[in-house]
Amino acid sequence: MYLNKLFAITADMGGWELFVNSLWPMIQGGIKYTIPLTLIAFTFGISLALITAIMRLSKYKFLSIPARIYVSAVRGTPMLVQLFIVFYGLGQIGFTIDPFPSAIIAFSLNVGAYASEVIRASILSIPKGQWEAAQTIGMGYSQALRRIILPQATRVSIPPLSNTFISLVKDTSLASLILVTELFRKAQEIAARTYDFMLLYVEAAFLYWIICFLLSLVQDRIENRLDRYVSK
């Protein structure tokens, strides 16, 4: 196997070669797991967050209370514990889920809770006059929300949601602990054979940094696009 060969060769090689040779396995881990996990979990998470935010804002208790409990439970427990419950816990009671889908479930639920607070706050930040103006031209609640409030709330929520997204990229490294062979797990595997912890973990850190840097460029572009109708 490629990795085994790599370990044999790197045993008496200098640090630079190890760095270069381990780059590809880590990037592979990133492309195959870290990035897809982030994108899929964020997409599900945001959809869940929008539903949760609207439920929390509802005047009906049977909608707002479950949403509150969900947010409170997720925010009040460590991400790693949530991940272990979905993978090991559910596995033990007969709902065995593979590592990757387990990670998607756990991270989606996590993002859903955190992002719902961001979305709720940005909906509340839109002046009441906007709801009223929508009402006077005959709009009902859902139409006003969809056409008038959410487009404006989206602009408000981009910076904090980008934060959530970038946190998610880094948090996916926790999936290494439920056997998802993502970027950091690759670094761990190589380090376990070569004992070059410093080099390999700094290299992993460097790769996460690059991913997050690229994402922040995307964020800037989205903000600029949505800025065209915002007063300054």
Binding site: G129, Q130, A133, A134, T136, R155, Y229, V230, S231
Partner: peptide, 13 residues
């Protein structure tokens, strides 16, 4: 009825 507000409340987007 059509309503005209003190603070206009136009849709900024």
């Amino acid at each position: 009825s059509g309503m005209v507000f003190q603070s206009y409340n136009l849709f900024p987007h």
